[in-house]
Every structure is written in structure tokens, then in C-alpha cells.
Amino acid sequence: MAENIVWHDHKVTRAERASIKNQKPCLLWFTGLSGSGKSTIANALDVALYQRGYHTFLLDGDNVRHGLCRDLGFSDEDRVENIRRIGEISKLFADAGLIVLSAFISPFASDRRMVRNLFPEGEFIEVYLDTPLETCEARDPKGLYEKARQGEIRHFTGIDSPYEAPSHPEVRLDTSVMSVDACVESLITYMVFRELITR
């Protein structure tokens, strides 16, 4: 860490930024294999929350790698750094009073725990897209599984790189048997139950 850096407190507090938006900041962290439905469900929830008048921001794995994390590859070390950066960015958005949706494979439990520890109790919601590998591979929306099976892509999660499934996620969804609308309704219901939104 660089020396001679001092934290500067803001005049407007985190609570005040959230209060003016009439909402409670939090992070919904969508994790799961490629093709499990993370981006699709996160996008659909983003629209549903926006239509209800909530202030949100969506962070997507591919989009972030076009800018903030374009210098990173897919080695284990780069994946850790990718998630660390996303965790810190998510925290800043939450500090601004937003409901943050982050859709990343984030295969390692330690990385997800690292992000959870950045947030106050109850503000990190792990959403596990528990969709079977066979379903994800059959979908293969970007053709990545085929390339991984042919050896054209190395360190591909679920093929030659492990995915450590969450043991106790706040929400578990399986898009092989649940529609997008059903998944969004489950998430809205959970957020209402936790008093993060009021419907």
C-alpha cells in the first residue's frame, strides 16, 4: 500500500445519500457458471427495480473487462484481482446510496467472502445461479464452452478451472427450471422480506 495516504471523511454521509433516495443501499452479488443466467437475471431485476423507482447500478463481468479490468487475464491471480476491484467499486456505489447488482462468475469462495466483508451485516446478498453445468454448456451463448473443450481457452471455469459453489447463499436460483420472471419475483420477494425495498 502506498505511504502518506490519509482517509478523507466526506461531509455528506452514506446514510444521508441513501435517505435522499428513500432506499437502503446493498449489493446483490450474482455468481454462477458462464451461461447460468447471471447477466440476464441481473438485467431483468435492474429493470424491475428501476420501474419501481429505485436507484440502481449494474456491474457486468464482460463490461468491466472492457475498461476497469482490461489489463487482467484469467489466471487465478487475475481473477482474484478482478473481484477485488469489483468489490471496491461496488462498495463505492453502495456508499453513494445505490442498490448495486454485480454479475460475475467469481468462482472462488474466498473472493466472495472478501467482498462480503467490505459491507455492513445484511447488505451483501449472495445470489447463486445454481444452474447445472450441462444446461450452461448446452446454452453456450458465447461459444466459450466449445472453445474450452477444444483447448482454445485455458482456465475456463467448470472445465479446467474449479467453481466453488456457495454453501449458504442468501438466494439460490436454477434457471434450468425457473423462468426469468420467476427469478426476478423471488429476488423482489427476498428484498421486501429483508426490508431493502417496499415493492
Rank of each mutant, 00 (worst) to 15 (best):
I20E: 11
R79G: 00
M178T: 05
W7A: 12
P120R: 07
C183D: 06
S110H: 10
V47C: 08
W29Y: 03
V177Y: 07
S176E: 07
Y163V: 05
S106A: 12
I41C: 05
R113V: 15
T40A: 03
E77M: 02
N63S: 13
G97R: 05
F104C: 00
V177N: 10
T56G: 13
E88A: 15
E164G: 13
I99E: 01
A2W: 03
D46C: 06
E16K: 10
F108W: 05
V47R: 13
R112M: 01
C183Y: 06
C69F: 00
Y128N: 02
P166Y: 05
R194C: 08
L59A: 09
D160S: 12
E16V: 09
A165V: 03
S34T: 09
C136A: 14
F119Y: 10
R112G: 04
Y54F: 15
K147I: 07
C183G: 04
P162G: 06
V184R: 11
L49S: 04
L101Y: 00
H8L: 09
Y190V: 02
N63W: 06
A138S: 14
P162R: 02
E195V: 15
L45C: 03
C136F: 10
G122Y: 12
S110K: 13
T175A: 02
V6G: 00
V12I: 15
S176F: 10
E137T: 08
I159Y: 02
L33Y: 09
Q150T: 02
I99V: 14
G73Y: 13
C26A: 13
N63H: 13
E185P: 00
E146I: 15
L33S: 06
E81W: 04
L28K: 03
E134H: 07
V80E: 10
L59S: 04
S179Y: 13
R149I: 15
F119H: 07
I5H: 09
F93M: 09
S110G: 05
L129Q: 04
N63I: 07
P107N: 08
F193T: 14
E16G: 01
G35S: 15
M1L: 12
L27N: 01
Y145A: 06
A48Q: 06
E164Q: 15
L72A: 02
L45S: 00
T13Q: 02
V64N: 00
I125Y: 10
K38E: 01
E137L: 11
F124T: 01
I125K: 07
Y128G: 01
L27K: 09
N43Y: 09
T175N: 08
E121F: 15
V12Y: 08
I41D: 02
L101A: 04
E185C: 00
V115S: 04
V192Q: 14
Y54K: 12
R17K: 14
V100M: 01
G158R: 03
H66N: 12
D130S: 05
E81F: 05
F74P: 08
R17H: 07
N22A: 14
F156M: 02
E3I: 10
D78Q: 11
V12H: 08
E146K: 15
C26D: 00
D71V: 00
G143C: 07
S34R: 11
C69Y: 03
H66A: 03
L28H: 01
H168D: 10
C183M: 03
L45K: 01
P169S: 09
G37V: 08
I159P: 01
D60A: 00
D9T: 09
K147L: 15
L118F: 14
D160F: 12
E88S: 08
A42H: 06
V177E: 05
P162M: 03
